[in-house]
């Protein structure tokens, strides 16, 4: 186990940023902390790095209790959201910093430092920018310098705070793939914070979904997407239709029975049902309960809005399927629900 978080709690004034958080990070994995702002994900990351103190709990880095250690003793690599590059130092000096500030006894010689730095700059493909200053680099390049700088101290774990947050969409995608590849090459235990579900699902080995200082679910990307453990995860990940319903005898009835959905998890009474748009099937039916109120085509996909007993549902399908069904705005239709999750209403 690379990182073991147990019962970590953190309070800012009256605001509880983290509430009894337990988490295990496995050696060599790339883990995403995903959640909306204020969910505590960045606080958790900063506590791992020692940049924030915890009020209670324990944190072990490679089996060693770390809460009492200062950041400089923890040997973690940290990539800041806005990179925090030293603006008065060249790219080379930024990357070399962690090696130059070591106690004299552990410090490498000048040529060894140079060799290591250049090696890292090769790794992040910035070797010929060594003499530039941060202000002369693009956002993506700065981000790679920050990464090289963090890796220079040979950290046991790498922590990244919103690593792609400050980049534009195109660079973000490229860099994401590049980081995944880098991780596959060097296999350093990494934790990154993001509020972007697509980023987390695409990049991470495992995803930790957080909300209001608690962990809602931990699992593989497919796991958290296909089997959300809570109403929050359902709403936070991907598009979802949400209806109030009443559950009796394993059947959830929506809008006074206009829709009846079979359920499995034994919830009874007032509840909320979640259905992904692509799990919602439509078929043309002159006497059907639904009426197509709008069709939006975006690239190869089509979104169909359906009015059903005062509710607005959203179905998603590819364009071929839509033209096969021949649905047009105003048509009546039948609605089938292949899959739904029901959670008791709070």
């Amino acid at each position: 186990m690379a990182i073991q978080v147990s019962g970590i709690t953190k309070q800012f004034g009256h605001y509880r940023a983290l509430d009894q958080v337990d988490l295990e990070v496995r050696s060599g994995e790339l883990l995403a902390l995903l959640g909306p702002s204020g969910s505590g994900k960045t606080t958790l990351l900063r506590i791992m790095a020692g940049l924030e103190s915890a009020d209670s709990g324990s944190l072990q880095l490679h089996g060693e209790e770390a809460l009492g250690l200062s950041p400089r003793e923890r040997q973690v690599g940290f990539v800041f959201q806005h990179y925090a590059l030293f603006r008065h130092m060249t790219v080379f000096d930024n990357v070399a910093f962690g090696l130059k500030v070591r106690p004299r006894a552990q410090r490498f010689g000048r040529s060894e430092i140079k060799r290591r730095v250049m090696e890292l700059l090769e790794l992040v493909q910035l070797a010929h920018f060594a003499d530039r200053y941060p202000a002369q680099l693009s956002g993506g390049q700065r981000q790679r310098v920050a990464l090289a700088r963090a890796l220079a101290i040979e950290p046991k774990v790498l922590l990244l705070d919103e690593p792609f947050g400050a980049l534009d969409a195109k660079v973000r995608k490229e860099l994401r793939r590049w980081l995944r590849k880098l991780h596959d090459d060097i296999h350093i235990t990494s934790v990154f914070v993001t509020h972007d579900q697509e980023e987390a699902l695409e990049l991470a080995d495992r995803v930790v979904v957080m909300s209001q200082g608690r962990i809602e679910q931990v699992g593989s990307p497919a796991d958290v997407y296909d089997h959300p453990a809570s109403a929050f995860v359902y709403e936070f990940l991907g598009q979802v239709n949400r209806f109030d319903c009443t559950v009796a005898d394993g059947v959830a009835r929506v809008a006074n029975g206009a829709l009846a959905i079979p359920t499995e998890n034994g919830v009874q009474g007032e509840a909320i049902a979640y259905v992904r748009p692509h799990d919602l099937g439509l078929s043309p039916s002159a006497g059907g309960p639904g009426r197509v109120s709008g069709i939006h085509v975006v690239g190869p996909d089509a979104r169909v809005e359906v009015d059903l007993a005062g509710l607005t549902l959203e179905a998603e399908m590819d364009r071929e399927r839509l033209s096969f069904l021949g649905l047009r705005p105003g048509d009546r239709c039948a609605v089938h629900i292949d899959r739904a999750r029901v959670f008791p209403r709070r």
């Binding site: 200062s70 400089r72 923890r74 925090a84 590059l85 962690g98 500030v101 700088r149 963090a150």
Partner: peptide, 16 residues
């Protein structure tokens, strides 16, 4: 304080 935090994480002492 970000640059100072970065320096501390990279192993610098307070004076450094």
């Amino acid at each position: 304080t970000e640059e100072e935090e970065a320096a501390l994480v990279l192993g610098a002492s307070g004076w450094q």
